[in-house]
Design a protein around this nucleic acid. Structure first.
Length: 424
DNA sequence: TCTGGGGTCCTAGGACCC
DNA sequence: TCTGGGGTCCTAGGACCC
């Protein structure tokens, strides 16, 4: 048996931890550049605001109902996530963090009759310890856990934890569950199932396995099995990432090469730090820059370039010089680049690299320098040492590349804020 | 005018080999 | 004019997740 812990409206809940006055009020958290809605309080959902909707399309609604909006504050969300996950991890030997706001645990070590009260207690503990409300679902497969957690979220009577542990409960739960809300069923699968007359999770689970295979292939079979209580997606311990991305949409399109290079330097820096944190090296990367796909009035243009590193590396300078060398020839004057990014695609373990006889770099020296830079930044902040390419350009003073007009303070990570919280 | 960011897995089809 | 069959590996793109 597994249990999932799923934070309720996570980003909104994080903001409310430090703004208790916003309980029971409509609240939204916005994506980068305050573009789209990415998290909604229950009150905002009740007003009909959909996930992912652009802010400008609901401006009137926001004003009319005095909805509080926040720019996303990932330093805060990451920090609170780590606290929630650490409590969760303390309850079991088998734990998997599935996303920033969800984690699976095994509850095999808890006697069956105590599992639900045990999870209710975890819900209370996490709320008391972090201020974040969560819901839990307990079941013999991860997909059924997700179903159960949605019931726990919807009906307060479950006291935060819903368990599917009998055949009767499974049938009843699936009967009232929309197939589109099942974990693993996306838009495409839903359309195919709908065409076959299937609208509930129970109808799908009641089909034959070969029906699921013919219509939805391997992933569909997995979901079908899981809905029928056959545990098919085991808990997987954290492993090194196979790809690392940093990308941004710009508030105002960029046209000049130096400003694009500055952004690519920031992206590369961010990816490379994550790479070194998991003790990996990168053998191949992708750099891209594109015009806005929403603009039908301008000529679309896209740069997508594979970058093969001469040697697998995690050195920011080496990665950046290769990435910029690949990008420069494809840059075109006059193009309005609205979004750009860097993806590290071929990632290897740091100690699996073969030395190259013809290598021209002094790698011992490079890595000593990189370590020294990392140490300084750990102590004194990310801006303490940067590459020249990352320097703020004079033209940007009154012209922000990124927009964030509703950013909350760095409550948990900024030293001055921590002092003021303790003092208060 | 304004439209996010970061991942994983699977599949079909091409390249290549014998 | 006739022109095999089967296997592996790689990659781009799609689907899905939060």
């Amino acid at each position: 048996m597994y249990a999932i812990a799923d934070c309720n409206n996570f980003y909104v809940s994080c903001e409310r931890v430090f703004r208790p006055d916003l309980w029971n009020k409509p609240v939204l958290v916005l994506s980068g550049n305050d573009g789209c809605v990415v998290s909604r309080s229950n009150e905002a959902k009740a007003l009909g605001i959909k996930m992912g909707v652009p802010l400008y399309q609901i401006k009137d609604l926001v004003e009319q109902h005095h909805i509080t909006c926040f720019s996303s504050n990932f330093a805060l969300y990451g920090d609170l996530s780590a606290r929630v996950m650490s409590i969760l991890r303390s309850h079991t030997m088998r734990f998997e963090q599935y996303s920033i706001d969800e984690g699976f645990i095994s509850v095999d070590h808890i006697p069956p009759a105590e599992r639900k009260p045990y999870c209710e207690q975890i819900v209370r503990q996490i709320y008391q310890g972090t201020g974040i409300p969560i819901s839990m679902g307990i079941a013999p497969s991860k997909t059924l856990c997700k179903v159960a957690s949605k019931y726990a979220k919807k009906y307060p009577g479950y006291r935060g934890a819903c368990m599917i542990d009998t055949e009767q409960k499974r049938l009843t739960a699936l009967e009232h569950f929309d197939i589109a809300d099942v974990w693993g069923i996306g838009r495409s699968a839903q359309a195919k199932l709908s065409a076959a007359g299937i609208t509930t999770a129970l109808q799908f689970a009641g089909q034959s396995e070969s029906f699921a295979r013919t219509l939805l292939h391997k992933p569909g079979v997995l979901t079908w099995r899981e809905l029928n209580g056959i545990d098919s997606i085991d808990i997987t311990e954290a492993v090194a990432k196979q790809s690392i991305t940093t990308s941004r949409t710009f508030a105002k399109a960029l046209t000049e090469l130096p400003e694009l290079e500055q952004q690519l330097a920031n992206f590369t820096d961010s990816c490379a730090r994550k790479l070194r944190m998991q003790h990996s090296v990168c053998a191949e990367a992708l750099v891209y820059a594109i015009t806005s796909p929403f603009r039908s009035d301008i000529q679309q243009y896209r740069v997508v370039q594979k970058v093969t590193l001469p040697m697998p590396t995690s050195d920011t300078r080496e990665l950046l010089s290769n990435i910029l060398a690949a990008f420069r020839p494809l840059y075109k004057q006059g193009v309005q680049f609205k979004k750009a990014g860097v993806i590290f695609t071929r990632i290897l373990s740091g100690n699996a690299v073969m030395p190259d006889l013809f290598d021209t770099r002094d790698r011992a020296r490079d890595s000593a320098l990189q370590r020294a830079i990392d140490n300084i930044r750990d102590k004194h902040g990310r801006q303490a040492v940067i590459l020249g390419t990352q320097l703020q350009l004079p033209s940007q003073a009154a012209d922000p590349v990124f927009k964030a007009e509703h950013h909350s303070p760095l409550y948990t990570t900024d030293v001055s804020q921590i002092i003021s919280i303790n003092a208060g």
